[in-house]
Design a protein around this nucleic acid. Structure first.
Lengths: 142, 142
DNA sequence: ACAATGTGTTAGGGTTGCCTTACAATTCTT
DNA sequence: AAGAATTGTAAGGCAACCCTAACACATTGT
């Protein structure tokens, strides 16, 4: 259990986006990443250096960004968190996919693992007992 | 709906602490605030200037910090968010008070109002249907 | 009243992270 | 191959936070 945080929120966002490209088998370069995250190429360039320094990605100018195994590991953790949160927001609270994702993206960096674990169990429990949720929804058609 | 954020996360933390002192009728000075937040007196001094500049607090050296009506308003909003999150974590997910509070403290600054609203309704719904929660808890005594 | 203690500010630093502008290197297109 | 387009990097800035050290000012206690 690393008490010292390896990654800042910002770097986790970059890493996550790189991971998504990896999942999609889509080659990703800095400029494209900048577009995706709505950040200047210069800032992305800096961030990639930081990620390389921390040995989370491999990257040489003009080439495709790739994850090291350490980076893949970290990215998967972040991505899993994202998923748990998004799922909860959507399925339990009935939030739209976009809003759920947006919020998950910010919260994933700071919420404790313990809460995420409980949340996972909870969401699963509710999915297996649909009737409970249906009742809630019935009472809350805004 | 102010699209431009009035307060950064950091300033919201200061404001919240000031608000709690206000609720408790406890006079609060900079040094005490520094102790509470575990931050140097110098940093607190800076932060207070920023809060004064934004007209959220009234403050003169060596006097007690007080909220303007604008500040009170903002503080109440932050505090309400904190409460909703903490309550949800504790009551629904069964998280300890400390951990619930710690997490709420970070998430309150970034989560959308819409999600908080739904979360409030949801928590209330569950409180009125205890049996559902009891079942969940029975299946999840870690 | 005056020393000890507590409080606040300034000055000088540091980090992260973002920006723009300008230039360099590469790749694409014709 | 050569110019156009894309991509990357440097340099210089800025804001939010945080720190320590040193000093000024206030309050308290004996």
């Amino acid at each position: 259990m690393p008490e010292t945080k390896l990654l800042t929120s910002g770097l986790e966002d970059y890493l996550e986006e790189i991971y998504i490209a990896h999942l999609n088998n889509t080659p990703l370069k800095g400029a494209e990443l900048a577009r995706k995250l709505n950040i200047s190429r210069a800032s992305v360039s800096e961030a990639l250096s930081r990620l390389v320094a921390r040995k989370l990605i491999k990257y040489n100018s003009y080439e495709t960004i790739s994850l090291t195994s350490k980076g893949l590991n970290e990215a998967q953790k972040v991505y899993a968190k994202h998923h748990i949160l998004k799922d909860f927001f959507e399925e339990i609270l009935g939030i739209s996919a976009d809003e759920a994702s947006e919020n998950a993206c910010k919260i994933e960096h700071i919420i404790s693992q313990n809460i995420l674990d409980k949340m996972t169990k909870y969401t699963n429990y509710c999915k297996n007992h649909k009737e409970l949720l249906d009742n809630f929804k019935k009472e809350n058609f805004d």
